[in-house]
Design a protein around this nucleic acid. Structure first.
Lengths: 165, 165
DNA sequence: TTAATTACGGACAATATATATCCGAAATAA
DNA sequence: TTATTTCGGATATATATTGTCCGTAATTAA
């Protein structure tokens, strides 16, 4: 049970995009530079976010990425689901049907309790992430930032944001 | 985010061991035969359970595996932790420290909100599994079993259990 | 006490998945 | 048209999972 590091990148990327003024966008290169991660692989995460409808893309000159909806309406679960998919973490292979004392089909009207328990645990995991919108990440990050750094961030965005007009 | 199939095997194995009379044991071959899974790989899961202190092993003639403590005191989380380890699913690589606007060490007294959110979600997952003891699995399985099959299971155990004396 | 038997335990390959990268095609604005 | 920029697929590399083996320890019986 492991979570790919792409999720961390994508979450941070969304948090940065949330700082943009309405209509503005950031190129893949700019985003990768800001986050200090390799651009080609970040591109893969951004594509996944795009397919999931979390970010909008704009090709061509002054193109880039922007959030497709309000940061308040994008949760960490949305990001996780976009990258890892929604397939259940526990796949039941119906062991109870195997072997000399295997259960007959009529004895298996519902998933076994092992599968049910893991499914419920996963639901708890998912619900916990669903309760955290990107705005919460942004607020938490700005809360600890010094005034000097906040100014530098604003300046960087001003410099790299490519507005649509 | 995926869970190995070994967890399913190990959980079922524990459920079978829970049916043994006190002091009795089941050999690796017998267990694999009962579950209908390849014995050499099941051995790996059983070793992990042994290292984690969930099952007791006995070598030599008439040896085998038995639960190390009451089935009531073994949860699905115990089994999961024994096989997958307790290392967190989300590893924060401190992206916030990267790039031209990276945070200084003094601005990072606590984990960032992304890491905190995933940690909390994982706690919810873990707590959910912790609430499910092996006894619940056994009860659920016997609830749907026909009387005929319950008798066959008792017979199979009688035949394969190797008592310690 | 000794030797044969039985089963566990860790080391060892093969396979699958995730990670990281690149390049051509498509699209957009000037 | 031309320069710029993203998207998608094809391609290596690294890591984790899956599967298999043989040595070693423990037990029983002679």
């Amino acid at each position: 049970m492991k979570l790919g590091k792409g999720i961390e990148w994508a979450a941070h990327a969304c948090a940065v995009l949330a700082l943009l003024p309405p209509g503005a966008a950031l190129s893949r290169e700019s985003l990768a530079g800001y986050l200090g991660v390799p651009a080609p692989y970040l591109a893969k995460q951004l594509q996944a976010l795009s397919r999931a409808g979390l970010v909008e893309t704009q090709r061509g000159v002054a193109g880039g990425y922007r959030l497709a909806r309000a940061a308040q309406a994008i949760s960490l679960w949305d990001v996780t689901a976009a990258l890892e998919g929604t397939r259940p973490t526990f796949q039941c292979t119906e062991i109870r049907r195997n072997g000399p004392c295997g259960a007959s089909p009529s004895e298996c009207p519902a998933p076994c309790d092992i599968a049910a328990a893991f499914h419920q645990a996963e639901t708890a995991f998912r619900d916990s992430l669903r309760a955290v919108p990107i705005t919460q990440i942004v607020l938490g990050a700005t809360a600890v930032a010094t005034d000097d750094r906040k100014a530098r961030i604003r300046e960087w965005i001003q410099e790299h944001a490519t507005g649509r007009h």
